[in-house]
């Protein structure tokens, strides 16, 4: 059982099913490369915020959230390495800008 899980939340219509598969593979690869997890065991879930239900700064949002949880925790340097790797991968695969992405890597 993996000590790492990822929950991804996007605005409806922004990321298609094929792209989600590539993003999930990317997240699992990062967990394997940086955290030593077995990629196949890392749970990745996706959910959508329906159009008209998500706002940022009081205006409709185009922002996606990737929330990682790491059982046992990591030090801050490794945490930032993981978050930066996710941002690089996610922006490249999805085409969103860095300003449209929030990434967390929480101790659990």
């Amino acid at each position: 059982m993996s000590r790492v899980t990822f929950r991804c939340t996007m605005q409806e219509g922004q990321v298609d099913e094929d792209t989600r598969v590539v993003l999930a593979d990317g997240l699992r690869r990062i967990a394997a490369d940086l955290l030593g997890e077995s990629a196949d065991d890392v749970p990745v879930s996706f959910s959508d915020i329906p159009a008209g239900f998500g706002f940022r700064g009081g205006a409709p949002s185009t922002t996606s959230l990737v929330r990682g949880a790491i059982v046992g925790g990591v030090d801050q340097a490794l945490r930032e390495q993981v978050m930066r790797a996710i941002i690089d991968m996610w922006t490249e695969v999805s085409g969103c800008t860095v300003d449209e992405l929030i990434v967390s890597a929480a101790d659990a």
Binding site: G54, R56, G57, G58, S61
Partner: peptide, 24 residues
Amino acid sequence: AKAFTDVHCGSTGAPRSFVHVVFD
């Protein structure tokens, strides 16, 4: 969403783009 942004930023001084509001 606009009211929450006003309240949060008025109370904390945080930037407006910081504030995310989602309805579920």
